[in-house]
């Protein structure tokens, strides 16, 4: 019941595994410089198989089985109706007793429960909003940073990179204390006489946290594309009589689309699967789909793992579909394609 706890062995294993991965990667790069032979990719392939392919297969396996290992589609029915597996777990005789008393499943709070779908829709909406805000904030920022005539551009790049040297959790916790009732923003508001505003533990706070964390993933792909763009193209356009707005509209924007596509993917993907940011900034009152899945896996009853896997699979398929659609907009992967 104590509140200070060391991470379990699993985390140590992960840390060591990660260190080993880095070591192997370095070894691979060093070796590969001399002999470019695909055989040296095998450590990485092994890594992918053990830590990516097998876990994905496990998720798929879990989502189509019950805890006893028999094939079932119930976990997907649970996605549609969150109470499906719950009702199955209750002794039918007990349910009958209540029904004999004239109580329906709805009276018992065990009727169809659309929580999973509602939460998924909410998460998609939050992710969409986050991506849109990141694009609106990020494109101009990237454009300014890549502008050759703007001398502070490189400084801005550094300012964007430096916070990323710190773990995102720490940054989010910092955000939490900035937005608290007794935090920085509210202290200033109090001083100005606007009284404390309720900032933390709201949907808006979660959105701010998401935009804050994912903005660099929008800025850098766009910045990369704009930075590499042949400057002479704009000059040629100017020679041919384009004004600044027309250059942007006719030359810069179309050429930067691969970066935008890459940015959208890189923001939308983590945004849909967000969890923990919502817990920290939403005070446990704002639940995203990621939180829902996390709760399933933290539960003690094994059955929940199967349902959690099914929820993950649904989300993976959705993400894959949206990635496929985006890939069409950037077939050559010029924006530093994702997969």
């Amino acid at each position: 019941m104590t509140s200070f706890q060391v991470p379990g062995w699993g985390y140590v294993l992960m840390a060591v595994g990660f260190a080993a991965f880095i070591a192997l990667l370095i070894a691979y790069i060093v070796v590969n410089r001399g002999f470019k032979r695909p055989v040296f990719a095998s450590p990485y392939v092994l890594w992918i198989i053990v830590f990516t392919v097998i876990p994905c297969l496990l998720v798929a396996y879990f989502s189509f089985t019950d805890p006893a290992g028999n094939f079932t589609l119930d976990n997907f029915k649970s996605f549609w109706d969150a109470n499906y597996n719950t009702r199955k777990g209750i002794d039918p005789a007990l349910l009958q007793q209540y029904q004999d008393m004239g109580l329906s499943l709805d009276d018992l709070g065990l009727g169809r429960n659309p929580i999973n779908i509602d939460t998924l829709v909410f998460s998609l909406w939050m992710a969409f909003l986050c991506t849109a805000i990141c694009l609106l904030l990020g494109y101009p920022a990237a454009h300014i940073m890549a502008d050759r005539e703007f001398r502070l551009g490189p400084t801005l790049v550094v300012l964007f990179v430096v916070p990323m040297w710190m773990n995102f959790l720490l940054r989010t916790i910092a955000l939490m204390s900035i937005m608290e009732d007794g935090g920085l923003i509210n202290t200033v508001l109090n001083w100005l006489g606007f009284g404390p505003a309720k900032l933390l533990n709201t949907t808006a706070a979660v959105q701010v946290g998401m935009v804050y964390n994912f903005l660099p993933f929008m800025v850098f792909p766009i910045y990369n594309v704009l930075n590499k763009m042949d400057y002479q193209l704009s000059e040629a356009a100017m020679d041919l009589g384009c004004n600044k707005w027309k250059i942007f509209y006719k030359v810069t924007l179309p050429l930067s689309i691969p970066g935008v596509v890459s940015g959208i993917t890189m923001v939308f993907m983590p945004a849909v699967t967000t969890f923990y940011i919502s817990r920290l900034l939403g005070g446990g009152k704002v639940q995203l789909f990621g939180d829902l899945i996390e709760a399933k896996f933290l539960s003690t009853s094994l059955n929940e793992w199967n349902v959690g896997s099914a929820l993950s699979l649904v989300m993976m398929v959705l993400i894959l579909l949206s990635l496929g659609l985006l890939q069409k907009a950037d077939p050559k992967g010029e924006g530093g394609g994702i997969i």
Binding site: A82, I90, D91, G109, T119, G284, A295, T300, S301
Partner: peptide
């Protein structure tokens, strides 16, 4: 027991969501 714990879980999910 696990079976009934899922009832607790489902009510709690309802509260949290």
């Amino acid at each position: 027991p696990d079976d009934f714990l899922s009832v607790y879980n489902s009510f709690w999910t309802k509260v949290k969501n």
